[in-house]
Design a protein around this nucleic acid. Structure first.
Lengths: 206, 206
DNA sequence: TAGATTGTTAATCGATTAACAATC
DNA sequence: TAGATTGTTAATCGATTAACAATC
């Protein structure tokens, strides 16, 4: 039992967890390292190696029990349980995020949606009503939120990030595509689907 | 000039390109390896090393010219120019994707949006009108489309992927979160924001 | 000149892969 | 038993990092 995983292992573990969660939803009860490899593009030997470092979770000739492995990896990543997040931006992107299962599937619960546009106040987003940005500090403190999700246009992203940081979040998850700066004690992550598409395209063209 | 980049280098190059493109939009004309490192979480020495393998693009004491470096990396990745893509799913997620600059910024042009719901036919999505899925093969052939983007609910994702494969795409870019199977000559990529959030959370909690 | 940053080396560490025994 | 798949080893390759000369 390692004290702290290396960056590479942790990233791959999170990826395995996502695949297992989806496999479970699809009704699968067992899965092999080769199947996980197909979905993650991680070498199957590497997967078995990563897992066997923490215990013997598989059955030779059979594969891994999906439920059991979800439990093991959640434990290793210490991400089991509920994690509260706030969403900034109630437009189409925000609505799509609020309605997607992808966060809920991993125990991320959206406890508030805010928007700076007064016209959106009270409008529904997922199963919440949109609130003003002035509620952000309260939402974050009362619900012990450490993650803020930015779903606003690129021009507004830095301002929103600043507000989130002031209000106390430690992780800014940025869907806007814009580059944002945060202080050292905060981690910013910008999703960039185009990066992965460029990468896939390179190998197709080459 | 290497014939074919390794997977790691190609992924990082695509990431640098995304940062440079955003930096250019923000009005920056020069950037240092340390700044690129902040935004990509890739070690600054690694960045300089990756780039210097293809030429001397930087100016000591100054940094890299943003425009020039965009050109160099586009050339290395051979992704310069226009790439046509089709979008399946005209709901909120599809609309958010159609309106986002993130694909257009890298030369990806959406040439058609289709949806299986007859009620959505003719409705606007981005600056296109939604069409029926029966138009998919024609759209793909006429526009030499190699990438199909899946923005439908998880339950419908596999069917949509099958249709896209039959219609001739080579890369399926899947926003649904569901696991999808494609034949060996096709590459499937499933975006999974939750994976990156789990990863960020692990390092925050640990 | 002084300060900053690149380009490059060398040394270390982790990822990757093939191969195969263990075992379900 | 036969087939499949895990767990593990060993060997190779690429990533990472510190250090520093080159040079803007």
């Amino acid at each position: 039992m390692a004290d702290r995983l290396g960056g590479g292992v942790a990233a791959r573990m999170a990826h395995y967890l996502q695949v297992l969660t989806q496999a479970k939803k699809a009704g699968r009860s067992a899965i092999t390292s080769h199947e996980i490899s197909e979905y993650t593009h991680v070498n199957a030997t590497q997967i078995r190696r990563d897992l066997s470092g923490f215990g013997t979770f598989g059955k030779r000739g059979v594969g891994y029990n999906v439920d059991a492995l979800i439990g093991e990896i959640s434990g290793i990543l210490r991400t089991a349980g509920q994690h509260n997040i706030v969403l900034v931006g109630g437009g189409r992107l925000g609505q799509a995020i609020a309605e997607a299962d992808v966060f809920a599937d991993h125990g991320f619960s959206i406890v508030g949606v805010v928007d700076s546009d007064p016209a959106m106040l009270g409008q529904p987003c997922g199963n919440l009503a949109i609130r003003g940005t002035e509620d952000l500090p309260m939402l974050i403190e009362e619900n012990q939120v450490i993650v803020g999700v930015v779903a606003v246009p690129a021009e507004a992203a830095q301002d929103v990030a600043d507000e989130l940081v002031r209000a106390g979040v430690r992780i800014v998850f940025n869907y806007s595509g814009a580059l944002i700066d945060v202080p050292p004690h905060v981690t910013a992550h910008t999703t960039s689907p185009a990066v992965e598409l460029l990468y896939a395209l390179y190998f197709h063209l080459a």
